[in-house]
Amino acid sequence: MKKKNLSKAVLYIVLSIGALIMIAPFIWMISTSLKSIDEVFTYPPTLFGKTIRWDNYARVSDRYPFGHWFINSTIVTTVVLVCQLFTSSLAGFVFARLKFRYRDVIFLVYLATMMIPVHVTIIPVFIIMRELGLIDKLPSLILTEVATAFGTFLMRQFYMTIPDSLEDAAKIDGCNPFGTFWRIFLPLSKPALATLGIFIFMGMWNDFIRPLIFINSVENMTLTLGLANMKGMYATDWPVMMAGAFISMIPILIVFLFAQDFFVKSITLTGLKE
């Protein structure tokens, strides 16, 4: 019994040290974001400055259109979210439930395209976007993500588990395949959609390389690109940069707080992707 308590204590200590290492940079970020610029450059460092400088958060949008970036990120993320959830569930339904020739071969080939890294096709995609006149416009960040193999795969796996009897009932009612999908399958897919949704949300909100290549003007940037850009401008104004970095994380933090289990599920499934 005594030995068990001891090992438990050791476990807690190890976990606490580990957790502290993981969290320290975040605490450092928040602490810095609330200090004055002079207090940042003092040695030894302190956790809090003499006064809490909330105005750093206001200063974020002084020289840069931070609000624009936030809105741009929100637009891109939301549009992709809605479109991809819809196309993925449709395509997932087709591959799970409808029968056509070479269905499973086509599905596997489509699935294999998940393995093509974004960097390998980025030059031709850039050229296509240019031909479409979409460079420096938000649709260039949206279009490629409107329908994906990964989303299709995830929804298909879910629809495979739904019993036939439900589908048969709809067929007897005279539903066409879209009707069956819309009335029976879609309403059942909330958990799967939430999992895929979190995956899409994280990917889009944190996306960097595509905005970097497709967007030029400052006001059309997304948060990640804007922040990277800020770094060049503010150079050593760490309080403002840390405030900006923290704001950019808040939406994901909120979702994480309320849907931790879905996050974990989404990540475990992501293992299948990257």
Partner: peptide, 28 residues
């Protein structure tokens, strides 16, 4: 504890990069 270890995963590489640039500052 799980949430703490998971926190860096949900942050963007850009936010993480900025945070760590400041962590790595030579003097401060």
């Amino acid at each position: 504890f799980r949430a703490a270890f998971f926190l860096p995963v949900i942050a963007s590489w850009v936010a993480v990069g900025l945070m760590w640039m400041w962590m790595y500052d030579k003097q401060f």
